[in-house]
């Protein structure tokens, strides 16, 4: 697996740049990665990423937008507003989880 280095932090990634090792992730790393895609990571942004990591620790898979809404209690419109464009992929990438595979 290739590795990336960002601001002196090294982490292992897959071919598409998603983190492969759960423990490589930190909130500071997420903030640095977010800056690369034009997102200024606020507590509101982070709350979603934290939920995603807790949820995936239990289920073993990256939660879909629908699950982030129904289980996490986050409003879909908020998700699109905070992570515009491709919310599911952006959030998975920033939370250090694999690319989501669920359809809905």
């Amino acid at each position: 697996m290739p590795t990336n280095t960002l601001n002196d932090r090294t982490f292992e990634v897959d071919a598409e740049g998603f983190l492969t090792r759960r423990d490589d992730w930190s909130e500071d790393l997420a903030a640095d990665m977010a800056a690369l895609i034009g997102i200024d990571l606020s507590d509101e942004h982070l709350a979603i990423l934290r939920f995603m990591r807790e949820d995936s620790a239990q289920t073993g898979v990256t939660p879909t937008l629908r699950r982030i809404q129904t289980v996490g209690g986050f409003d879909i419109k908020t998700l699109f507003a905070l992570y515009p464009g491709k919310p599911a992929k952006k959030m998975a990438w920033l939370s250090g989880l694999p690319k989501p595979v669920g359809c809905v």
Binding site: R66, R67, G102
Partner: peptide, 18 residues
């Protein structure tokens, strides 16, 4: 079982997603 929403809920989801 696949966690697919019902049709009315799906429309809510689509509406919220734009």
């Amino acid at each position: 079982e696949q966690e697919i929403p019902t049709v009315p809920e799906f429309l809510d989801l689509l509406q919220a997603s734009g």
